[in-house]
Write a protein that binds this DNA or RNA. Structure first.
Length: 622
DNA sequence: GTTTAGGATTCG
C-alpha cells in the first residue's frame, strides 16, 4: 500500500550482533540507568544498561544538551527503542553512545500495560509491528529477569540503606554552596523521628499553608554536589523519583532518641539522582491515592489536610481556654430595693422584683439534663439528640452512594473515594469555594456524604463548618433534622422539625461565604441550646420556685458548648456547688441577689403564677 | 562534528 511505502523501514540489531564502529537501531530492557544529570562538560548525561533476549548486556552513554531528548526512563524494567546509536568497543566490551540523529522511545515494561511511547520526538514511527516487539520483550523480561520488590515508602523506610522514593516536592531551600534541601512527601508517615535540616522557615520556597500542614509528615532530603543544580530547578508541587537516597541513623547531642537522616550524596553511583515524573505516571497516580483528577491548588491543599487527617488518628485536644471560676451572684441594675419572698408570693403577677435569697435546692441535679433545645418560633423545648441518633441517621444515608452528577459544580468542588475496608463505602466531600481558600483552607465549608460519625467528627476538628448531606437525583439535601444540619467545631446545630422547611442545598451557593445566614437560607428554624433549671429560693419569710431559662448569661457558659466540653461541665458543677453546697446547713448557704419576674399561666380553669430569673449573672470573683 | 562518562553507593 502507498502508506506503507512512505514509512521508513527500520532494521533492529539484537545485542549479541553488535559490531564496533556501526550505527544501529535496537530494542532493550533497562537493567540499570542513571537519570539524566548535568555532566562536567556541556551536556546532560544518562547512562543506560540494556539487556535483550540474547542475554547480552549493553551499556550506553547518552549525551544531549536538551534533557528532554534523553530517554524518559523511570524504572528498571522499562523498555527502550534507540535509533541511530553508535557502537564502539571500550575496555574489551561493546558500548553504545549517542550519535547524530539519536532518538529514543521508552515504554512501561509491565505486561498488559498500555503500549504508549514516551518520547520528545514530534515524529516517530510506531506501528503494529513495534507494538508486538514491545509486548514480546515484556513477556520475556517477566520470566527471565529478576523483578525488584515494591518501591519503598516513607512508612517503610529502614535506617542504613539506600532506596528510591517516589514523592511530591513540597518545599526547597538553599543550605550552602554544596548542599540543597528538598522537603518531600509521599502520602505516608515515617515511623521514626526524622531529621530536620536547620533552615529558616522564611528561606523555604513553597506554599506556606502546605509546609505548615505537612511539617510532621514530609521529610527533609539533603542533596549534595552535582545534584544541587538540578534540585534548584525543580518546581514546587512536581512529582519526583529520587534514586538511591541514603538513610542514616544519627542522634544529636541534645536528643535522647536517634533520628533518621535522608541524604542524596554526590556522584551518580548506582543511579543516584533525581528524576521528574509526569502526572500520567502510574506511580504518581498511586501517590495521589484518590481516583479523581486534581482541580487546582487549593483543593490539593484540602485533600492533603484530609489525608493527613485520616492518616494520623491521634489528635491533641485543643487546650481549653482558662476561665475564672465564679462564686456568688450579682445583679445588673441597682435601682430596685429588695423584696421579701413572702411579699412576692402574696402579690399578683406580672411584676419584677429584686430579691436576696438562698438557694435551698435545684433541679435537675444532674446538670447535663438541664440542657435543652429551644425553638424561639414555636417556643417548644426538646431533648438534645445523642450521638447514637446521629450515627443511625448517617448509616442510613450512607446506603445511597453519592450521585456522580452532583460532583463539582460552579460553587463547590468535590472529591470522592472508596474506603479501603471490606465495606467499600463511598465517601464524597464537597468543598464550597471561597476567596480566601488558599490562605486558610480550614475555613472552607464542606459537605460530606457517606461519612461515619467518627469521620464527620474528625472533619469538624479541622474544618470550620461541616454539613452532612445526601444525594437525591436532583440535588444534595440535608439529612433528617434529628441529626445536626451543621457542625461547627464541637457544636452541633439542630433545626426545629416543626418550623423548618428544608430547601435544596443549592440555595447555599449564593451565600456560601456567610455562614451565619446558613440556617435561614436552608429553610431551617435554628434550635438554640438553653439551660432550664428550677431553683428553690428561701429568705426566712418564704420559699419560692424560680425557673432559670438561660442561653449563656447566668453561668457565663454557652449552653451550646457544655455537652461537648468536660471543663465547662466541671466549671458549672463547681458553680452550683458554691451557690448550693451539697449537704450544707441553712446558715452555710450563701446569699444570692437576683432579679425575678412573675407571670401568669392559665390552663383552662387553672391559674398559676410562675417566677423566672432574669438579668442575673454569676459573679466572677472568689 | 569536541567533551562530557565509560554503572558498581557517602563519609557532608
Amino acid at each position: 500500500m502507498h502508506f506503507q511505502s512512505v514509512a521508513p523501514k527500520y532494521a533492529y540489531t539484537s545485542l549479541n550482533h553488535l559490531k564496533d564502529g556501526t550505527i544501529v537501531n535496537l530494542y532493550g530492557i533497562v537493567k540499570f540507568f542513571k537519570p539524566p544529570y548535568v555532566s562536567k562538560g556541556t551536556d546532560y548525561c544518562s547512562v543506560v544498561t540494556l539487556v535483550d533476549p540474547s542475554n547480552v548486556k549493553l551499556t550506553c552513554t547518552l549525551f544531549s544538551g536538551n534533557v528532554d531528548s534523553l530517554p524518559k526512563i523511570y524504572k528498571v524494567g522499562d523498555i527502550v527503542r534507540f535509533h541511530r546509536i553508535k557502537i564502539r568497543e571500550y575496555n574489551g566490551q561493546m558500548q553504545g553512545i549517542t550519535s547524530v540523529g539519536f532518538a529514543s522511545l521508552t515504554f512501561d515494561g509491565t505486561v498488559g500495560a498500555p503500549v504508549v511511547p514516551r518520547t520528545s520526538s514530534k515524529v516517530y514511527t510506531f506501528m503494529d509491528e513495534e507494538q508486538k516487539i514491545v509486548e514480546e520483550l515484556r513477556v520475556w523480561a517477566a520470566s527471565n529477569l529478576s523483578v525488584c520488590g515494591p518501591a519503598a515508602k516513607l512508612s517503610g523506610v529502614q535506617p542504613m540503606l539506600f532506596f528510591d522514593l517516589t514523592c511530591q516536592l513540597v518545599g526547597k531551600a538553599k543550605v550552602d554552596g554544596s548542599s540543597f534541601l528538598l522537603k518531600v512527601w509521599d502520602g505516608t508517615k515515617c515511623p521514626y523521628p526524622t531529621w530536620k535540616v536547620p533552615v529558616e522557615a522564611r528561606d523555604v520556597e513553597g506554599e506556606k499553608v502546605l509546609l505548615h500542614q505537612l511539617q510532621n509528615l514530609m521529610v527533609d532530603i539533603l542533596v549534595y554536589d552535582n545534584h544541587v543544580q538540578l534540585a534548584k530547578s525543580l518546581k514546587i508541587g512536581s512529582f519526583l523519583r529520587i534514586y538511591s537516597i541514603h538513610t542514616k541513623q544519627a542522634s544529636a547531642v541534645d536528643e535522647d532518641v536517634s533520628h533518621i537522616e535522608f541524604h542524596l550524596h554526590g556522584g551518580t553511583c548506582y543511579g543516584r539522582g533525581i528524576g521528574v515524573l509526569p502526572e500520567s505516571n502510574p506511580d504518581v497516580k498511586e501517590l495521589k491515592d484518590f481516583n479523581f483528577p486534581l482541580f487546582g491548588f487549593w483543593l490539593c491543599v484540602c485533600i492533603i489536610i484530609i489525608r493527613k487527617f485520616f492518616l494520623i488518628l491521634d489528635f491533641e485536644s485543643r487546650l481549653q481556654r482558662c476561665q475564672q471560676l465564679p462564686v456568688t451572684v450579682l445583679t445588673d441594675h441597682q435601682d430596685l430595693n429588695n423584696t421579701e419572698l413572702k411579699t412576692i408570693l402574696n402579690s399578683t403577677a406580672p411584676q419584677q422584683y429584686r430579691i436576696r435569697a438562698k438557694l435551698r435546692t435545684y433541679k435537675p441535679q444532674k446538670l447535663y439534663q438541664s440542657i435543652k433545645l429551644h425553638c424561639s418560633k414555636c417556643n417548644s423545648l426538646q431533648e438534645v439528640p445523642d450521638g447514637d441518633d446521629f450515627d443511625f441517621i448517617l448509616q442510613g444515608s450512607a446506603i445511597t452512594a453519592p450521585n456522580a452528577e452532583l460532583q463539582n459544580t460552579s460553587w463547590y468542588d468535590s472529591v470522592m473515594w472508596t474506603t479501603q475496608d471490606e465495606k467499600q463505602r463511598k465517601i464524597a466531600i464537597h468543598f464550597v469555594k471561597h476567596d480566601e481558600m488558599l490562605q486558610q483552607p480550614e475555613d472552607t465549608l464542606l459537605m460530606i456524604e457517606g461519612g461515619t460519625l467518627k469521620e464527620v467528627w474528625k472533619l469538624t476538628k479541622i474544618f470550620k463548618c461541616v454539613i452532612p448531606v445526601r444525594s437525591t437525583e436532583e440535588d444534595l439535601e440535608l439529612l433528617d433534622l434529628s441529626a445536626p444540619f451543621l457542625l461547627q467545631g464541637n457544636i452541633k446545630y439542630y433545626g426545629c422539625k416543626q418550623c423548618s422547611t428544608p430547601k435544596p442545598i443549592k440555595s447555599l451557593s449564593s451565600i456560601a461565604k456567610q455562614i451565619n445566614l446558613f440556617s435561614s437560607v436552608l429553610g431551617i428554624e435554628l434550635l438554640q441550646y438553653v439551660f432550664i433549671m428550677k431553683f428553690t429560693l428561701i429568705d426566712g419569710t418564704g420559699a419560692l420556685n424560680a425557673y432559670l431559662f438561660d442561653y449563656e448569661k447566668f453561668f457565663q457558659i454557652p449552653a451550646s458548648e457544655i455537652l461537648s466540653n468536660n471543663f465547662l461541665q466541671h466549671k458549672m458543677q463547681m458553680t452550683m456547688n458554691t451557690l448550693c453546697p451539697p449537704g450544707g446547713k441553712l446558715d452555710d448557704l450563701p446569699w444570692l441577689e437576683c432579679f425575678i419576674k412573675s407571670y401568669n399561666v392559665r390552663d383552662g380553669m387553672k391559674h398559676q403564677v410562675y417566677y423566672q430569673i432574669f438579668d442575673t449573672t454569676v459573679a466572677e470573683d472568689v
